[in-house]
C-alpha cells in the first residue's frame, strides 16, 4: 500500500470533483474513529496517548469504537501471535469501508524481539497496513505522528479508490473478501 499518488492519477477526475474530494477527505480525516486492537505494552502507551497529556481527542479521535462496524482505523498495538492472527483478520474483515490500519510498535510491525515460533512476524502478513509506527513501545508522540500520517492518507484518498481494481487486487492478495454492498444482502 501507500501508492496513493499513483492511484490518484489513475482515478483522475475533473478539477471540481477533486476539490470536492479534498473537502470531503479533510472532513473524513478529522473524524477517524479508532478501534484499538491493543494487546500488550503498546496498549498502555496508547492509553497514555488517549490521556490528558497527549489528548488524541484533538484529532476528533476520542470516540473509540470497539465494534469493528463503526471503526475507521484499526490500531494494532502489540504482539500478534499466530494464534491471534485469524482473530485480527476477522476484525479487519468486519470493518466497513473505508478502513485504514495503523501498525503500532515493533511487535505488530515485524515481531520485534519476539522472533519466535509463536509470534507472527509482522501483521502485514495477514492484513494490509497503511502506516507503520516503529518503537517498542512507541512514544505517544510517535503514535500521534502515525495518526497524522493516516490523516494525510485519508485527506488525499479519492473517494472511489475503494472500488478501484488495484484495491480489490490488494485485498485479494491477502485473501480478504471485499464486502460489496450487493453481496451483503445474502
Amino acid at each position: 500500500m501507500g501508492k496513493i499518488e499513483d492511484l490518484q492519477v489513475i482515478n483522475g477526475e475533473g478539477y471540481q470533483l477533486t476539490r470536492l474530494e479534498k473537502v470531503l477527505g479533510t472532513a473524513r480525516a478529522n473524524s477517524v474513529w479508532p478501534l484499538p486492537f491493543a494487546t500488550s505494552c503498546c496498549g498502555i502507551e496508547y492509553m497514555a496517548t488517549m490521556g490528558s497529556n497527549y489528548d488524541l481527542a484533538r484529532f476528533g479521535m476520542e470516540r473509540m469504537s470497539f465494534s469493528p462496524r463503526q471503526a475507521d482505523l484499526l490500531i494494532v498495538a502489540g504482539t500478534i501471535s499466530k494464534k491471534l492472527g485469524p482473530v485480527l483478520k476477522q476484525v479487519y474483515e468486519q470493518m466497513a469501508e473505508p478502513k485504514w490500519v495503523l501498525s503500532v510498535g515493533a511487535c505488530a510491525c515485524s515481531g520485534g524481539i519476539f522472533d519466535t515460533y509463536s509470534v507472527l512476524q509482522g501483521i502485514d502478513r495477514i492484513i494490509p497496513v497503511d502506516v507503520y509506527v516503529p518503537g517498542c513501545p512507541p512514544r505517544p508522540e510517535q503514535i500521534i505522528d502515525g495518526i497524522i500520517r493516516i490523516h494525510e492518507l485519508v485527506k488525499n484518498e479519492p473517494l472511489r479508490r475503494r472500488y478501484s481494481d488495484e484495491y480489490k487486487h490488494l485485498l485479494k492478495d491477502y485473501n480478504i473478501e471485499t464486502n460489496d454492498p450487493e453481496q451483503s444482502d445474502k
Partner: peptide, 11 residues
C-alpha cells in the same frame, strides 16, 4: 489463553 504467547522462556 495464549493469544499473545511469545515464548519468553525459550528466548
Amino acid at each position: 489463553v495464549g493469544y499473545i504467547h511469545r515464548a519468553f522462556e525459550k528466548i
